[in-house]
């Protein structure tokens, strides 16, 4: 029985990837906390990872590119469907006069939560590698 990394690691490597992307988006929100007119953005983690899972099971309907000039659609790339359309805008709880929708407390809370979930994903991934190591050693 052949072991491929793709099937051995499962969803965890993709989850880790999406967590890093989400950290980036949240860090960007916080850097722009004082930029007038900036709209806070976020990733719908469930939707993105759901797209990955569906893609892994071969159920996703990918758009065909029949011409070299067609713009690529996110469907076949690493994190499935994570084009610009996956990047959503946050609904502001306290809109400010200058049009900025970044709520620093909320963003910091989300970032911290995301970091913890990243560490959880990391633990799972590390566990997978440990079991692979054990399997190789045969102890």
């Amino acid at each position: 029985m052949a072991i491929s990394f793709e099937s051995a690691l499962g969803i965890h490597q993709k989850a880790l990837e999406v967590r890093v992307q989400r950290a980036e988006v949240l860090a960007n929100n916080l850097a722009n906390a004082d930029t007038p007119g900036f709209k806070a953005r976020d990733i719908d983690f469930k939707a993105v990872l759901g797209g990955v899972q569906a893609g892994q099971q071969g159920e996703q309907l990918a758009m065909a590119t029949t011409n070299g000039k067609h713009l690529p659609h996110g469907g076949n790339s690493g994190v499935s469907g994570s084009g610009p359309d996956e990047l959503l805008y946050r609904v502001p709880s306290q809109p400010s006069v200058d049009g900025n929708t970044v709520d620093t407390q909320e963003e910091v809370a989300e970032f911290t939560k995301n970091t913890m979930q990243y560490q959880a994903s990391f633990q799972f991934l590390n566990g997978k590698f440990k079991s692979l190591n054990n399997a190789i050693r045969g102890e």
Binding site: Q21, E24, V25, N28, A31, N32, D34, T35, F38, R41, I43, L71, P72, H73, G74, N76, S77, G78, V79, S82, G83, P84, E86, L87
Partner: peptide, 15 residues
């Protein structure tokens, strides 16, 4: 879009 990095998110990159 033309560079083909479809998986990247097009968030802004800082301030």
């Amino acid at each position: 879009a033309l560079g083909g990095q479809a998986g990247e998110l097009s968030a802004s990159q800082g301030v």
